[in-house]
Amino acid sequence: MNRPSTFLYSVLCFGFAVLYIPVFVLMAYSFNDSRLPTVWGGFSTRWYSALLENEQILQAALLSLEIALVSATFATILGTMAGLALSRVGRFRGRSVLTGMIAAPLVMPDVITGLSLLLLFVSLQELLGWPGNRGANTITLAHITFSMAYVAVIVQARLANMDQSLEEAAMDLGGRPFAVTRDITLPLIAPAMASGWLLAFTLSLDDLVIASFTSGAGASTLPMVIFSKVKLGVTPEINALTTLVIAAVTIGVLISGWFMLRQLRAQPAPP
């Protein structure tokens, strides 16, 4: 097997440099005592203490976590149902419409999703007097809607690659569809549901545009607060926040990578 040439490796290194250097530089700045990025004022953790004392950022972070936890959970339930509906219950009327409604949110620009959902909430308010004040409730509904599509795609991909013989055997032995789904299918697709949940959680934490449209006057999520601060230029507290986020993500990825590696080693090698 011929190894990649020096040219290919140079481009690879350049690409990774573009992807990683800005974040690493920002992490270094987060320990800079000076407010200006060009002046090194010595090592300091003052921006971390400032971050932890910043009521506005902390509250927004808490709200974002709350929304992400609830919306990821509901998105996983609904997305799993949609995945099952598309690959396990056979033909039904309107199947192609469901396929389209699952695929479209994946490529819909955020501005359109946000605008259309806000107008729905405004219309519902006029017609039914619900959902009342827009805020965490409407953002959560919006996040469930766009992230359930991602979960559905992940679950569907897993179901499509899965051997159906276990489920068929259970059916042949007289298992009712509900029991077969509960006892055979769900345990088999649990890892896909877990990845779907994680993806939905991340997407919710990261969303700025849809939340800005669907939120009311009172509620600001973490990305909304970050955006309003960052628009004005360098904010040392945000440097500290970035470092914390990157650290948390890296630890999370390392842990899940370790688990995956252990699982791979536990399985017999493919022939």
Partner: peptide
């Protein structure tokens, strides 16, 4: 993994990192 990792970190914060790099007093 190095390709996928940025995908899991905040998009907004990564754009901010670019702002800091390219600013008038940036690196």
């Amino acid at each position: 993994l190095l390709v996928i990792l940025p995908f899991w970190t905040s998009f907004l914060l990564r754009i901010y990192a670019l702002m800091v790099m390219m600013g008038q007093h940036g690196l």
